[in-house]
Write a protein that binds this DNA or RNA. Structure first.
Lengths: 196, 196
DNA sequence: CAGATGACAGATTTCAATATCTGTCAGTCC
DNA sequence: GGACTGACAGATATTGAAATCTGTCATCTG
């Protein structure tokens, strides 16, 4: 064969490129096959359905954000500072993605809308990261151990309370003037709410 | 004339009925006129455009919720208790509307999507109510006066942090199991965040 | 024989014609 | 004469026939 072997990874890359070019409603499996120079039957060898292909490419996209945040979780700084940095970095990352390539961001927002399982897993990852920071903070004695429930419950509450600054549904608000002040106020409120 | 005079109020009532029956995409000015037994030209005598008619009917709908909450603001109970009740009642009211007549709720959710001015005014009303409670709490010494900014800023933060439990975009989540625990956790977190 | 192809049936989307709606206004009717 | 009508132009929505897409599979190829 002249070109490289057709792998799932190459199919995913082509899919992302096709999605970027045509958007979620017009990107077809035939387009992906065309971009790879193969027949669409070959794409179905790697992904059973179009939905499975979209799920895989979306999961990859979401996982990139989670990985961006792990350094903050594993850091050795005080928990309160890490929580602040984690929330800020999440907001920055989302805002950067949304502002840098609005069409691709909109595309993935549409995709995630049809994929509660993939999204739930991603949210689970992020809440897990938050829970680890909160657990550390309780061990340090900086965060209250009795108030908002187990670390995972507190983490869920923090995640939900800051939703306006990471949920794609609000992406349009992220470029409004005053958004930084709003974010600072919510972040402060939430962190104060965790304190001992 | 045999029937009652055609008033703006009667037009609004007919519009709500037509919206309930046909939904936001199929409800036309001609339908409203038909429901009233007049020509559509008469409807234009009371509302300059279809958009103005929809704005008026949407504002009425939103104002009904605001009015439901004023008793809690004007109550003489301690501020922290009133804040708790205000948040709970807002969530209950929204959930009740969304669950009781899902189609009409979805209809109004679509309408509000095209009406930032009306929605901003409504949010301004609600944040104003919250600010009054927070101001009282600061006067009582229960809420910190130095932390999250002026009462209006703190009120905005509280409103945004609890968005998942009043923003129609999340209506689908309000019937999920565990939502009450989630709400309790966020509510507790936020109220603790305001404390002195 | 593992991997790729392309013809095929049924589902979905596109597109252009046709129908309906919005907003105006000259004219009608108490 | 003030409230209402209905014909009208331009904008928007609906419809159904034609084109395209999804997913399968018998066949091909190196």
């Amino acid at each position: 064969m002249v070109s490289e072997a057709l792998t799932a990874e190459r199919v995913l890359e082509a899919t992302e490129e096709v999605l970027r070019r045509y958007g979620p409603s017009k990107a077809t499996v035939v387009d992906v096959a065309r971009a790879l120079g193969v027949s669409h039957g070959s794409v179905y060898r790697h992904f059973r359905t179009k939905a499975a292909l979209r799920e895989a490419v979306t999961q990859r996209w979401l996982d990139r954000t989670s990985e961006l945040l792990t350094p903050v979780v594993d850091d050795s700084a005080p928990a309160e500072e890490r929580l602040d940095r984690w929330l800020t970095r999440l907001f920055e990352a989302k805002r950067h993605k949304a502002g840098g390539d609005p069409e691709l961001f909109a595309t993935y927002s549409v995709l995630t809308g049809d994929m509660s399982a993939v999204v739930d897993r991603h949210i689970g990852d992020l809440v897990g990261q938050l829970a680890r920071i909160i657990e550390d903070g309780r061990r340090e004695g900086v965060f209250a151990s009795d108030s908002v429930g187990f670390p995972t419950e507190a983490a869920r509450a923090v995640f939900q309370a800051t939703g306006r600054f990471h949920d794609p549904a609000y992406a349009a608000e992220w470029s409004r003037p005053g958004i930084d002040e709003d974010f600072a106020a919510v972040r402060t409120l939430v962190i104060r709410g965790l304190r001992a």
